[in-house]
Nucleic acid binder design. Structure first.
Lengths: 341, 341
DNA sequence: CGTGATAAG
DNA sequence: CTTATCACG
C-alpha cells in the first residue's frame, strides 16, 4: 500500500469521520506501549492530582504518553481545620451492567465512599444486577432511568445514611424524562447528581443543551437559596483549555463549544465553585474521560467532564477533590470529594 | 432462595419463553462437564457418522452427554466402484464475519473441499473480510445477500474450478430478494446451495415457507430435467423423529411442523435422496445444529437441518456424506459430501 | 445464547 | 471503541 499524493486527503477524511467523538488530537499510531513510562515532569507532578503540572512553555511535540499517577493521599481537613466527614464518589459508568461485569464494584468497595453517584447507568430498575441492588453497604439506593428510550442515560445515588428527602429531575417536564438528575437532601446540604445532555455529533442537540443549562442553573440556584449544595456528575463540558488535551481541535465539537463553556462559566458566576480547579489551579493533563477509540486513555488524550461543584458556604469545609484515573471499567474514571460538613 | 410451590410455574415460564428457539428437550442444569464422557454405546457407534446408533429400547433417562465423535475416514468410492473426485462442504456459518474471527477458515483449509457452500453469511459483499475474498484456493467466488434487510440471510459458493454458469435465486421475484439460493452448473451436474426460510417463532412465517417449499421444489425439478443436481444447505427442517433430539416437544415448533416435514418428504418424492440417511439409515443423535442456549451442543441436544440431496442419477457415485460435528465456529456444523461424477 | 444493525456517546 | 436496543434465529 502507498499513500503518496493523497495522504492529506486521507487525513482529512479521518478527522471528519471522528471529529465529533472527542478524539481530536489523536493520531493513529502503529503500536503504543501499554504502560506509560515515567519522565522527569512526571516525577514533579506528585504535588498534584494524578496528572502533570501545566508546561511552562509548549515547544515541539507533546509526549505520546503523559503519565497517569497513583493518587497521592487525600487531604483530610478543610481550610477551617475541620476534618472530612463526608466522602462522595461520582462515576459515569457507561452502562452499569457492563461496569459491574468489569468489576467496578470492587473498586467502589475499596474506595468506600459515604455516597456513590453513578451516571449513564443505561439500565431499567428491574434489570439492575443483584450485585448492585443487594449491596448492604448502601442500604439507601435511588434510581432514575429514561422513560422513553430504554437503555439510555440514567443516574443513581447510593447512600450509607438515609437522606431526609430525595427528588428526581429539575422540576421541568421537558427535562425530566431522561433520568438525568437525582437530588438528595442531607441535614446540612443538598447533593445533586447529574448527567448533563450531550450536545451530540454535529451539535444537533446544542440548542436543547442551552435550554437545559439555563433551566438547570435556575434549579440549582433555587436549591442553593434553601441550603448549600454539592453538584456532582458528568456535566458534559470541558470548561477551559486546560481541561482537555486538544482545545484547538475541539472548539466546534460537543463538550467544548463556546456555548457549553459559557454555560459552565455562568454556573460558577451563580455562586458555585469547581472544587478540583479550586485546589489545583494549574493542574494540566487531569482528565476524567477518554474516548475508547485510538487508544486515547493510554496516551492520556482526555477531557475533564466530571466535576464536584460546591456552594460557597461549603468551601471552608472542602478537604480534597480527587480524580481517580487508575480506576477502570468505563470510558470515564471516578472522582471523589472529601468534605467537612 | 427457595422455590417451593411455584417451581412448576417457573418451569412453565421458561418453557414458554424458549419453546420456539429449538431448545425443547433441554433442562437447565446447575453444572455440566464441558467434555462428554465415553460410554459403552459410544464405542459401538464407530460404525456410524459421528453419533450413536439408535437405541433399541428407550428406557429411563437419556444420557446427558451423548458423545460427539471424531469422524471416521470417509468412504472414497461409490456403489459403482468409481473413486470420489468431487468434495463439497456446506456450512451455515451464522454470520460470516464472526465465523472468520472464530477461525472457521482454518477448518476449511484443513477440510479442503472442491466447493465450499456457506449459508447465513449475514454480510454485504462490500463488507466481506479480506481473509475470505483473498483465499487463493478458491478463485471463483459467488455471493448472494439480502437486498432489503442488511445483515440478514445470505449465501455463498466458493469453487476451485470455474462453473460453466452461475445463477442466483429460483426465478421467482417473491423469493429472490433474501439471498437464499446460488446455483452453479458444472459439466455433469448442477450444484444448488440454499438457505431455506425459517418458519420463525410462533410459526409466523410458516405460510410463506409452504409457498417457498412448493416453488423451490418446482425449481429443482426443472433443473433436474436438464441435468442431475446436488442440493446442499440449511433446509431448516428435521425430516423424521430420528433427525432431532426431542421430536415430541417440537411438533409445533419451526423446523419440525408436519407442514415442513411434508415439504421435505415431497422433495424426496420428486426424485431426490437424502444422502446421509441413505448411507446411515439407523443413525440417531446425528445433528448439524444445536441452539447456543442451555449448553445444547455439549449435551448433543440438536437437529439435523443441513443436507446433501442428490438426483437419482448421481446416487451410484455417492461415496460418503459426513457430518463434521467437531468443527466449531457457528451454531451449525459443516457437512461434507464425497461424490464420483 | 449469539450475530448483525442501529443509536448514542 | 464500547455500551445499549432490536430483529432474527
Amino acid at each position: 500500500m502507498h499513500f503518496g499524493l493523497c495522504s492529506s486527503r486521507i487525513l482529512c477524511v479521518r478527522v471528519c469521520a471522528v471529529s465529533f467523538l472527542r478524539v481530536c488530537g489523536l493520531k493513529k499510531t502503529v503500536s503504543m506501549p501499554k504502560r506509560a513510562k515515567k519522565n522527569e515532569e512526571a516525577v514533579e507532578g506528585e504535588t498534584g492530582n494524578g496528572a502533570e503540572p501545566a508546561k511552562k512553555e509548549k515547544k515541539g511535540k507533546e509526549p505520546e504518553s503523559p503519565i497517569l499517577y497513583e493518587d497521592p493521599p487525600a487531604k483530610m481537613t478543610g481550610k477551617d481545620g475541620r476534618a472530612s466527614n463526608m466522602k462522595i464518589t461520582s462515576w459515569n459508568v457507561d452502562g452499569l451492567r457492563a461496569w459491574v461485569r468489569k468489576n467496578g464494584l470492587d473498586w467502589v468497595r475499596k474506595e468506600d465512599p459515604d455516597v456513590l453517584c453513578l451516571q449513564e447507568t443505561k439500565c431499567a430498575e428491574k434489570a439492575l444486577p443483584s450485585e448492585v441492588t443487594d449491596m448492604p453497604e448502601y442500604p439507601h439506593k435511588y434510581w432514575a432511568a429514561s422513560e422513553d428510550k430504554e437503555g439510555y442515560s440514567g443516574v443513581a445515588m447510593l447512600c450509607k445514611t438515609e437522606p431526609l428527602n430525595v427528588t428526581y429531575g429539575i422540576g421541568k417536564e421537558e427535562h425530566d424524562k431522561e433520568g438525568r438528575v437525582i437530588t438528595a437532601e442531607f441535614p446540612s446540604f443538598f447533593l445533586v447528581t447529574a448527567y448533563v445532555p450531550n450536545a451530540s455529533r454535529g451539535l444537533v442537540r446544542l440548542d436543547y443543551r442551552k435550554t437545559w443549562d439555563v433551566d438547570f442553573r435556575a434549579y440549582l440556584s433555587g436549591l442553593d437559596q434553601r441550603k448549600p449544595l454539592v453538584l456532582c456528575g458528568d456535566l458534559n463540558v470541558a470548561h477551559q483549555e486546560i481541561d482537555l488535551k486538544n482545545p484547538k481541535g475541539n472548539r466546534k465539537n460537543a463538550g467544548f463549544t463556546p456555548e457549553e463553556r459559557e454555560g459552565f462559566t455562568q454556573l460558577l458566576e451563580a455562586g458555585f465553585t469547581d472544587s478540583f480547579r479550586e485546589l489545583y489551579r494549574e493542574q494540566a493533563n487531569a482528565y476524567t474521560f477518554w474516548t475508547y477509540m485510538m487508544n486515547a486513555r493510554a496516551k492520556n488524550v482526555g477531557w475533564r467532564l466530571d466535576y464536584f461543584l460546591l456552594s460557597s458556604a461549603l468551601l471552608p469545609g472542602l478537604c480534597d477533590s480527587k480524580i481517580r484515573n487508575t480506576a477502570m471499567g468505563s470510558d470515564h474514571c471516578p472522582i471523589t470529594l472529601y468534605l467537612a460538613v
